[in-house]
């Protein structure tokens, strides 16, 4: 186990290094100039700005300095937000995205497992068809559509009630989180439902289910102990990347509901060529993704002992 963990850790570090390097190269390959603003500056001022952000040095040296600072946990100062440290940006805004993401993924996972199980139980009957329609919609409609509609719904519901049931946008209390997290989790919910459905249908024909039936176990017990537990494995696999994706993919929802998450900085930094913020957020999310995938793998082993043994061997 320890050996396995060490190996995973080594691969994780290598992956993050690769992400950092690829981002650095890609970022510098994009045409455009991070120090350019609508007000043209004189060459002298420009020289000083380049010095401040270390852009006056050769690119290999910039890379070296960057990686060294990153190892020390320092992502530098933002190009576009005067005097603001990238570390502070991540520390202040990631918890917001994470909270929203955890709420979204929490209900999406529970809901997905539940709905997936229901569809498989009612296969080819109307609850199955209804949910499948919902799943297709949930997967194919982008979140900005749901977000706009969700906001309009809040407006309409509030107007109909005559008082403010839920705030239209903003951040600060639990009532601000309800609709955005519902919308954020919708895609994952739909995806997990589909995944769970096919996985349940696969398991239903397995030998051990037939054995269980032959033993005379109640169908409830078969469903919970044997079917669900075995069918949930693929869900765990996608959960790791999904958590990472949902905390990064919240940009549109954050925008429409005026939520101060990290997603906005992540996207805007690329548009504004804010080198340090691009590097900081990408490396941070990369590390987060690696962590989540590793955790999912460990969890996998806990749920299914066979996998644990195989990996050690």
């Amino acid at each position: 186990m320890l050996h396995y963990l060490m190996k995973r850790l080594a691969f994780g570090v290598l992956t993050i290094w690769f992400i950092a390097t690829a981002t650095f190269v890609g970022m510098h390959a994009v045409p455009g100039d991070p120090l350019m603003s609508d007000k043209a500056v004189s060459p002298e001022i420009r020289k000083h700005l380049e010095q401040r952000y270390g852009l006056d040095k050769p690119i290999m040296q910039q890379y070296q300095i960057y990686i060294m600072n990153m190892l020390k946990g320092d992502f530098g100062i933002s190009f576009t937000q005067q005097n603001r440290r990238v570390n502070d940006i991540i520390a202040e805004h990631f918890p917001v995205s994470a909270l929203l993401g955890v709420l979204a993924i929490g209900y999406a996972t529970l809901g997905g497992i539940m709905l997936g199980a229901i569809t498989s139980l009612y296969r080819n009957r109307w609850p199955d068809y209804l949910l499948i329609v919902f799943v297709v919609l949930g997967i194919s409609i982008p979140s900005f559509v749901f977000a706009s509609i969700g906001q309009l719904m809040i407006l309409k519901v509030n107007a109909w009630l005559g008082f403010q049931l839920l705030p239209v946008a903003g951040w600060g209390s639990i009532s601000h989180m309800i609709v955005p997290s519902l919308i954020l989790g919708l895609g994952i919910l739909a995806y997990l439902t589909r995944l769970m459905r096919s996985s349940m249908l696969e398991v239903i024909h397995a030998d051990y289910i037939r054995t269980a039936r032959a033993k005379g176990l109640s169908s409830q017990r078969i469903f919970y102990r044997h079917q669900l537990r075995n069918a949930v494995l693929p869900v765990i696999t996608v959960l790791g990347p999904a958590i990472a994706a949902i905390t990064t993919g919240g940009f549109v929802v954050e925008l429409i509901f005026a939520i101060p998450g990290l997603g906005r900085y992540f996207v805007q930094a690329v548009q504004q060529l804010d080198y340090t913020v691009i590097m900081g957020t990408t490396v941070f999310y990369g590390a987060f993704l690696v962590l989540m995938v590793t955790l999912a793998d460990l969890l996998y082993g806990l749920i299914d002992p066979r996998i644990r043994i195989q990996k050690v061997a």
Binding site: Q151, V168, A169, G170, L255, I256, A258
Partner: peptide, 16 residues
Amino acid sequence: PYITSDPGARYNLFKA
């Protein structure tokens, strides 16, 4: 209390 570059969201906030 609101920072968003989406004009639709700002309009909805005004309506609300």
